[in-house]
């Protein structure tokens, strides 16, 4: 044999899926939520999405070029960060601020910590919190159907805080009393309410999330444990007893759906161990509940996820699985 044969250690075959195919699959699963966002918020939403995705990809490209690193923009990870960030912004948010947020997400949160796989917090959420601190007013101003007013979640929070005992349906239908922002739980489920571009439609997010789980891109553990724990927390501490409409509004409102299926499940910043994923989900549910019910704001998903991101190494440390055949055996023999 004159030719040279390849030599490598086993295994000699590889599965077809790659980092790239996974990232693009997640982006595809975000499409239902994106389409509903564009339908609701129109051209402004399209511009914001394009601006965020383009800035994220460009930032990554320029950084990798400047640092003489292999350019990995096509792996879809930067595009996904951009899309997630845009879906977390209000449609009225100024484009230049969104561009700053995108640069922050890629440059500070992702690349400065070592790039893909090394960031300790979700880049899109890191940027969202950065923008929240920097431009609080713009971040919390929502317009739906050319009416600027509070989100349904804020309406409920305000009413509950003021000791309003009428039903949730009535509270939502009467709005906040100042603006004409009125809605219903059904609208919150479908997405016809005020909120960020991608968070309003629970059903659109659910469709994408179920596809992700069915295709085994993500495990059911984090979203299910997150939502279940949060639901239990709301029923116990929500102050409204066993009010299913209230629970439905809390689950459909705000960023919890988008957070549970697309943000908390970010591979890099969630535990890799199966038990760890359950612990992570439960912690998220509790923290979100605390922030939403006892905190000043009606929202709390981003902060809950970011705090839990920081706990991931600790969670993993205590949830290393017992190896095959060693169940029930103490360390050693």
């Amino acid at each position: 044999m004159g030719n040279l044969l390849n030599i490598s250690s086993s295994p000699h075959v590889r599965d077809k899926s790659s980092t790239q195919s996974i990232m693009w699959c997640v982006i595809l699963c975000l499409l239902p939520a994106t389409v509903v966002g564009i339908y609701n918020f129109g051209l402004k939403a399209i511009i914001l999405i394009i601006a965020c995705v383009a800035t994220c990809m460009l930032t990554e490209f320029i950084w990798q070029k400047a640092m003489k690193l292999p350019v990995t923009v096509t792996d879809g990870s930067a595009a996904l960060t951009g899309l997630l960030l845009a879906l977390n912004l209000s449609s009225t948010f100024p484009v230049w601020m969104a561009v700053i947020g995108s640069v922050f997400a890629i440059l500070v949160v992702k690349q400065l910590f070592g790039g893909l796989g090394q960031n300790f917090m979700n880049p899109a959420l890191g940027a969202r919190c950065f923008l929240m601190v920097s431009f609080a007013g713009k971040m919390t101003s929502f317009t739906y159907d050319s009416i600027t007013g509070p989100t349904p979640l804020a309406i409920i929070k305000n009413a509950v805080k003021n000791g309003d005992t009428s039903s949730i349906a009535d509270i939502l239908a009467s709005g906040d009393g100042q603006t004409q922002a009125t809605t219903s739980v059904i609208n919150m489920f479908l997405g016809n309410t005020a909120g960020t571009i991608g968070e309003t439609s629970a059903i659109a997010i659910l469709i994408g999330g179920i596809v992700l789980i069915a295709r085994k891109i993500i495990s059911w553990k984090i979203p299910v444990c997150y939502l279940a724990t949060f639901a239990v927390f709301v029923l116990i501490f929500g102050g409204r007893g066993f009010d299913i409409t209230y629970l439905a509004a809390e689950l459909c409102g705000g960023g919890i759906m988008l957070g549970a299926f697309f943000m908390a499940t970010d591979y890099v910043t969630s535990p890799i161990t199966p038990t760890g994923q359950i612990v992570f989900g439960v912690l998220l549910g509790i923290l979100t509940g605390i922030f939403r019910i006892f905190g000043a704001s009606a929202e709390g998903v981003s902060y809950a996820i970011i705090i839990c991101n920081l706990l991931v190494p600790l969670i993993e440390k205590v949830t290393i699985p017992v190896p095959f055949g060693k169940e029930g055996i103490k360390d050693g023999k």
């Binding site: 980092t19 893909l116 796989g117 591979y267 890799i272 161990t273 017992v322 190896p323 095959f324």
Partner: peptide, 18 residues
Amino acid sequence: SPCIRCGRCVSACPGNLV
């Protein structure tokens, strides 16, 4: 390429390792 911590290796391991 860099590890993205997807956890597929954990699910695939017959020895229940990480």
